[in-house]
């Protein structure tokens, strides 16, 4: 148990309450997934466990778990707030959305709009979103397929020296260098430009060196970060469920607790008095949708 469990819990509670309200306002319904799944190669992260001689996975990555459970592809707008284990017993709390079955570019713009709404409501002005594309890189290495894994490893490490050492012509290296270092608001990929234009938000950039290595991602990917934290706050991307396009993101709630100061003053009615009358009065207020604090 964390020594700071209760104060951390208050912060997580505040953030998750705000996020739930936002997700509901965007018409996303909460999904409750099983804690334990039978082990499957398609499930990412999680903690392996053996029970009755069978292998299971506890608290895997939510998107992969959703795909694992969604046997018949159909249009959905889900959100979740859940703990995820990444190969160890200490978990991270995540909140995210998955929009399955939308059309391009509405799908991406909607998911990113939800993300930007969260940043606005939580007053996170110093948080940015970088968009990247897997397809752009897959196209770029089509004619040097034998070196594709080296190029992606170079991207993962952000080590262009690995590409410079490849026996490929200089024009190709120049093309990869341009992609590797492109950061701006209008890039060589119209799909990203269209999304950025629709969002019209100064916190969103195109950064083609941004890649997220989850096997289900299909093309558009994005990363959420703050200069105040050394690690990404979250990220997401586009994937496929059967023939349907889908897009989602996950935010690291433990990271958000380092950036968000909870606001607990929310206009609740303060009540006091003898036990019978004060709780009768409190019930009336709650039935009217008003919050109460009973001073005991």
């Amino acid at each position: 148990m964390s020594k700071d469990l209760f104060s951390q819990s208050l912060r997580l509670s505040y953030i998750s309450r705000v996020l739930r309200e936002i997700f509901n306002l965007w018409n996303y319904s909460e999904i409750f997934l099983p804690t334990v799944e039978s082990f499957d190669e398609s499930l990412r992260d999680g903690l392996k466990m053996i029970y009755n001689d069978r292998v299971y996975l506890m608290k895997p990555d939510i998107t992969s778990q959703l795909l694992f459970n969604l046997k018949v592809p159909s249009r959905h707008r889900f959100f979740y707030i859940s703990e995820v284990l990444r190969g160890s017993i200490s978990g991270r709390w995540q909140a995210g959305v998955e929009f399955i079955g939308g059309e391009s570019p509405h799908l991406y713009v909607e998911v990113l709009s939800i993300l930007l709404t969260i940043l606005d409501v939580l007053n996170l002005n110093e948080v940015f979103v970088d968009l990247g594309s897997l397809k752009l890189w897959e196209d770029a290495v089509k004619d040097i397929k034998e070196y594709a894994s080296v190029v992606f490893e170079a991207l993962r490490k952000r080590n262009f020296g690995m590409i410079e050492e490849l026996p490929i012509d200089h024009d190709k290296k120049d093309e990869l260098w341009e992609l590797f270092n492109f950061r701006g608001r209008k890039g060589p990929y119209e799909k990203l430009n269209e999304v950025l234009e629709a969002l019209d938000d100064k916190r969103v950039f195109i950064d083609l060196g941004t890649i997220r290595f989850y096997p289900y991602y299909d093309d558009l990917i994005f990363e959420v970060y703050s200069p105040k934290l050394g690690r990404p706050i979250g990220g997401g991307g586009e994937y496929r469920v059967g023939a349907m396009k889908a897009c989602g993101f996950a935010l690291d709630l433990n990271a958000l607790t380092q950036l968000v100061e909870p606001k607990f003053e929310d206009g609740r009615v303060k009540l006091s008095g003898n036990v019978a009358s004060v709780y009768r009065e409190a019930r009336k207020f709650v039935l009217q949708g008003k919050g109460v604090i009973v001073d005991t």
């Binding site: 952000r158 950061r183 050394g230 990404p232």
Partner: peptide, 14 residues
């Protein structure tokens, strides 16, 4: 290089 520093201090780090 820190992943976020590479983004927010792009020119200086490069």
């Amino acid at each position: 290089v820190n992943r976020i520093a590479q983004k927010v201090k792009f020119d200086r780090i490069n």
